[in-house]
Structures are given as structure tokens and as C-alpha cells.
Nucleic acid binder design. Structure first.
Length: 601
RNA sequence: GGGCGUGUAGCCUAGUCUGGAUAGGGCACCGGGUUCCUAACCCGGCGGUCGGGGGUUCAAAUCCCCCCACGCCCGCCA
């Protein structure tokens, strides 16, 4: 199951609306006159873009024919015969039980180019402001470098934020930093003494490089002993007790000296990795804040008085999970330990209350392994009498090349930085063969953008609820359905416009001059963009944007291949206008995907 | 055992919510294309029991039921 983000406002500048809106009542009237009245809204729901060899818009008439006892084929013929003129419609034909409408290509070209000129970079974006939204994503514990298994969260979250912004929502992105859980406590525990005093099992297990290299990045440095510590604690209860003591000290706001420093340094390094692929955060919310400001104790107080609260023999506070049908074997949700300290879900509750106080819409990007946590959170919100709910966007993890999850402990993790380094290296080789004379920093600039585009697109092209196995050769692909493919189309358009010396870039056009099949196909693809934005925002299916990006780039490449522009005759200006519109739309698409645009590559 | 998710050509994938015409792409493979705007491209070919079975329907990849396979989750971890 996947839980989708809610509705988005309709976007502006949709050329198809200018066709469909007036066509619908006409069609309804025709059906009525033919003796096949339809339910209100039926035509609007069924009539949609449905491209065929000779048509753009189609509707199947089986249903109204059946309801009225007519033969579908004859109904289609009756309705098609003598169909009155309608905006943008050039042809109406009945094919079997289908009614097909062909759009006037010149009209659509004029309309679409005008929309792009009017909208500019905001073509396809919402014209009105929607409610403020908070998108929480990534939120990985600051206990070591980010690996690729988690990166889907960051890229989907970042892209969703971009898509929602385009559809009119002022968006705040948040990274929820768990600095008070057991994992953070483990890091603090081991680093609270010099490595020379570490247990041999931990010190000896760190392979290769020095663990005390002061020049090492903080996430690698502080995270290095983590897997060994985790294993060590399982067989050393006295050490586990020490870690528990740290957890308790965090709970009351008395963190050990270096605790925050380590967490901050580690987080900074992780965020720096994400910045390489254009993922940025508006706010970092520290879990400890909710302990310090007293909101967690308040949550516990409310839960203690809740209808299904039970007190365990050792003093732990629980809520009866059976009431909510949660698949908990214990059928209890523990919200406070026997020693009175809070748990992740309790603190998350406080966090969500704080989000509800600020944002009309609250969206959480979560790995599907957190589904039960999401359900638990909802159950506890109900228990507290809180009516509001976050919207969850769930995704499956990327698995390791060997199959199975990526795990630092098992050594199956592929780190984000390693992936990016490889991608940049490969891209550099490609760029160098094309631009042997360019200076190194220029080659690096292009290679970095290409690598970023490849990696982001590789993640975004697949629906989030699909489990995908990470494979280097796929992630580093620069051809076919890839980020660089889209970047390349943008480069071609940019280069063309540069050579055309358009100055302000405003080229007079006449839609009637854009009649080549490649031109018409490209125009139809551009015209679809506003609907793609609206759909992606409504459904939280950001992969629809990636799919569209390929369609648009492909349509442009075919046009580029088949239709001369600079050497064209009287159509030159119109074609340049189409190139400019393509570039604007491609730029907008790249922006929403977070794939960097390039002027050459 | 229960919950959730996934299953579409050799490999990857869109479409499934909201049933509709010949199931779209990409990789790989085979064959073409550059005196011309960047060949990270374009054109053609090859390749499909939409996991299996039943059902509903004029019509099923799509909806319903059963089954199979794989992944994740079911902690006083996060």
C-alpha cells in the first residue's frame, strides 16, 4: 500500500483545457440529442487525451449506448455526423464505438507557444497560492555516512518539495535529527573515551584506515566504530548499561560533553554529501528539543490519561494496540520505558504536534519498513484526541547489488559519496573525449552536473513502491532513459538559440508553419506539461515527472534530427520559437527533477 | 502465522487508483544514419501466457476471490 499526498490546485496555462472545457457541454448535448443522456460529469471524467494516429482526444461510447439501448457504433456515428465547431477541434470521426477528435495543429501550436511565452519559467506552475506544506525527508540518524539504500528518501523528498512548490504550495523541508536515541548514545559512549581505551573487540574490528585520523570526514570518522559497538553491546551487558545511562541523561537534557558536537559534525558531513546532488533542507529539527522544551513530558501526560492506557508492572506506560488493529504481537504500544524515558514514537508524536501547529499540510517521506510506525503514530494521535494526520509517502529501499538490504554492518552498503565520485569520474572521461581542449575546471563543472543528473534521474525514474536492486552500471548510465539524455536535449536547444542570435529570445511564430510531424508531436508533448505537474503533485508520484522528461527530450531530439532550424527558410522564426518553448519547458522539468541544466556537454 | 508492498520480453521499467482501440519506454542484440544546428542523438528490426487459476463485464495488465514467488515489518530499537 502506498499513501499519497493530497490534492493539488489546478495549474495554469494548460492548452488542453482550452480544448476540453468547451467541448464537454457540446458533446453532452449531442449525446442527449442522440437519445443517450449521460450522468453529470461522466463526459468530463471519460473524455481525455488519448493519442492515436489520427486523433488527440477520444471517448468510448459503450456505456451511454448500453444505458440507452443503442448500438455503440451507430451512436458514435450519429454524434459525429454534423458535429458543430468547437475550439481547437479540426476533425471528428467515429471509429467503431469510439468518438475521436483531432486537434487543429496550427491552433494548438499557437496556443501552446503563447502559453509558454506567457508563463516563462513558470509555464505549467500553479497560478494561485496553496496552503503551506512541510515535507520531512531523509532524517537519517547521524551515526555514519549516508548509503545509497537510503538515498531514495532524500531524492524523492527533495523532488516532491520542488513539485509541490510548482503547484503553489509554500514548502518547508525538514530533516528530523535523532540525537537522543540509542544509536546516537552508542556513538557518544564509544567516543567519550580515547580509542586507546576502547575494548579490543571494537578497536580491532576497524579495518584498514586509522580511526583517529583528524582529517577524515566526520561521518566516516565518528561512524567507523558503530557496527562494532553495536555487536559488542549484545554480549556485554555492563557496557549496554552505560549506554542506557547516556540515554537517560539525554532524556533530561544533560547530554555528555561531546554529544552534540559529534552529532552536529556527523550531520554536517552527511548533509554535505546530499548537497552534491542538490538536496537541501530548510530546517533541521533536533529530537532533543522536544525533551528540553517539555513537550515530550506533556505528550506522556496526555497519553497517561488516555482511554486505553495501561501501566505495566515495571512502570512502563502502554497503549492497547488491539483497539487499533495494529499487528503488534504484544498488542501493546509502549510509549514510556520502565525507567520513565521516552521512545522514538513518543518523541515523534511531539514532533508532529509541533508540525501541525505550523503547517496545514504535513508530509512524511518514509521507507516502507516504517509503515507500522506510521500506523502506530496515527493510533496514538487518535488516543490523544488529535484529529489531524500527516500524509505518508512510502517508498521501498534500494537493495544491495548482492541482494538484501544495504548494511554497514554486513559491509553491503554502497556509500553516496562513492557513487558520486564514480559517477563524476566516468562523466569526466566522457566529457574529455568530447572536449579535449577544455580546461579541467570546465570539464569538472560539466562532469559534476552530468553525474548529478544521472544519479538523481536513476532514482526518480522508478515508482517509489518498487523494490530496486542497486546496480552500478544502471546508476551510472548516461544514455537512453537517463538524466544526461534530458540534459542533452536542453543543451541542443540552448546551443541552437545561441547560434540564432535571437537577442531577447522572442521569435515571432505562426502555428501554421509548424506542421511537420516532428513539430506537431513536440508541441503536443510540451502542451502536456501542466497536467504532468498537477498529477505529480496530487499523487506524489514524482516518477511521472521523470517519465515526462524522457518523453519531452525524445520528442525534441526527433524534431532536432528531422527538421532543420537554422537553415530553414520562411519557417525559421517559427521553428526557433518552438525551440525556445522546448528549452523553457525542458528547463522547468530539469528544475523540478533537480537535474542541473547545462549550456554544453 | 499476521500486516504491507511487488510480480509486465534475456535484464530494467510505464500504464493499475479512475476498466476501453494494436500493452508504451530503456538496456542488451542485429541492421542503417554525420559534406548539415553537439551522434550522450536518430531510424528500422528482434523480443510479451501482463506470476498462475477462477470470477465480474460488451470490454480486464487494470476490479473481485483463491493460490504461488520475492521483499519489508510485527522490539521497553530507530
Amino acid at each position: 500500500m502506498s499513501i499519497k499526498a493530497g490534492p493539488a490546485l489546478p495549474v495554469s496555462g494548460d492548452p488542453w483545457r482550452a480544448v476540453l472545457d468547451p467541448l464537454i457541454p457540446v458533446l453532452e448535448q449531442r449525446l442527449h440529442d442522440a437519445g443517450a443522456a449521460t450522468d453529470p460529469g461522466w463526459v468530463r471524467g471519460e473524455l481525455d487525451l488519448n493519442e492515436g494516429p489520427e486523433w488527440d482526444v477520444a471517448i468510448a461510447l459503450h456505456r451511454p449506448a448500453k444505458n440507452s439501448g443503442l448500438a455503440p457504433e451507430s451512436l458514435a456515428r450519429t454524434v459525429a455526423t454534423g458535429f458543430p465547431p468547437s475550439t481547437g477541434i479540426a476533425r471528428v470521426q467515429a471509429v467503431g464505438a469510439y468518438l475521436n477528435f483531432g486537434v487543429d495543429g496550427a491552433w494548438l501550436a499557437d496556443r501552446t507557444l503563447q502559453e509558454v511565452v506567457d508563463g516563462g519559467d513558470r509555464f505549467g506552475h500553479a497560478a494561485v497560492q496553496a496552503e503551506a506544506a512541510c515535507v520531512e525527508h531523509t532524517s537519517a540518524n547521524p551515526t555514519g555516512p549516508l548509503h545509497v539504500g537510503r538515498i531514495r528518501n532524500s531524492i524523492i523528498g527533495d523532488t516532491l518539495a520542488r513539485v509541490l512548490r510548482a503547484s503553489g504550495h509554500p514548502v518547508t523541508t525538514q530533516y528530523y535529527v535523532d540525537d537522543v536515541g540509542r544509536q546516537a548514545a552508542m556513538i557518544t559512549w564509544i567516543w567519550s573515551k580515547p580509542p586507546s581505551e576502547w575494548p579490543e573487540e571494537i578497536r580491532g574490528s576497524i579495518p584498514g584506515a586509522r580511526w583517529d585520523d583528524p582529517n577524515e570526514r566526520a561521518d566516516l570518522h565518528f561512524g567507523k566504530p558503530y557496527p562494532a559497538v553495536s555487536a559488542y553491546l549484545k554480549s556485554h551487558p555492563e557496557a549496554a548499561t552505560e549506554v542506557a545511562a547516556i540515554t537517560e541523561s539525554l532524556e533530561v537534557g544533560r547530554a555528555p560533553a561531546r554529544h552534540r558536537e559529534i552529532a552536529t559534525a556527523t550531520l554536517d558531513a552527511m548533509v554535505a554529501s546530499l548537497a552534491r546532488i542538490g538536496v537541501r533542507f530548510d530546517e533541521f529539527v533536533w529530537e532533543s528539543d522536544f525533551l528540553v522544551d517539555g513537550s515530550v513530558p506533556k505528550v506522556l501526560e496526555r497519553l497517561g490519561q488516555a482511554a486505553h492506557a495501561t501501566h505495566e508492572p515495571n512502570g512502563a506506560l502502554a497503549i492497547d494496540a488491539a483497539t487499533y488493529g495494529l499487528p503488534k504481537e504484544s498488542s501493546k504500544i509502549i510509549v514510556a520505558r520502565g525507567n520513565g524515558t521516552s521512545l522514538y514514537v513518543t518523541r515523534d508524536l511531539a514532533y508532529h504536534l509541533s508540525k501541525f501547529a505550523r503547517f496545514p499540510r504535513v508530509i512524511d517521506v518514509l521507507g516502507q519498513d516504517h509503515l507500522l510506525h506510521a500506523r502506530t503514530l496515527e493510533a496514538l494521535l487518535t488516543e490523544m484526541g488529535e484529529p489531524r494526520r500527516p500524509e505518508f509517502v512510502l517508498y521501498q529501499y534500494l537493495t544491495a547489488p548482492s541482494g538484501g538490504g544495504m548494511s554497514t554492518r554486513k559491509g553491503t552498503a554502497v556509500y553516496l559519496d562513492a557513487l558520486l565520485d564514480d559517477a563524476v569520474g566516468r562523466a569526466r572521461t566522457e566529457v574529455r573525449t568530447r572536449w579535449p581542449e577544455s580546461p579541467d575546471d570546465e570539464v569538472d563543472r560539466i562532469a559534476t552536473a552530468v553525474a548529478t543528473g544521472a544519479v538523481r534521474y536513476h532514482i526518480l525514474r522508478v515508482a517509489p513502491d518498487k523494490t530496486v536492486a542497486f546496480r552500478w552500471e544502471d546508476a551510472l548510465s548516461f544514455e537512453g532513459r537517463s538524466g544526461p539524455f534530458v540534459q542533452y536535449a536542453y543543451v541542443r536547444a540552448t546551443s541552437l538559440l545561441k547560434k540564432a542570435e535571437g537577442g531577447g529570445g522572442a521569435f515571432p511564430y505562426r502555428g501554421a508553419e509548424l506542421a511537420q510531424p516532428e513539430e506537431q508531436a513536440l508541441i503536443r508533448t510540451i502542451a502536456r506539461w501542466p497536467r504532468v505537474v498537477a498529477y505529480a503533485a496530487r499523487s506524489a508520484h514524482v516518477h511521472a515527472v521523470a517519465g515526462y522528461a524522457h518523453d519531452l527530450a525524445e520528442a525534441f531530439n526527433r524534431f532536432y534530427q528531422g527538421v532543420p532550424v537554422l537553415k530553414a527558410g520562411s519557417e525559421r522564426s517559427s521553428r526557433l520559437a518552438l525551440v525556445a518553448a522546448s528549452r523553457t519547458t525542458l528547463g522547468s522539468v530539469l528544475d523540478l527533477l533537480g537535474v542541473p541544466p547545462l549550456d554544453r556537454m
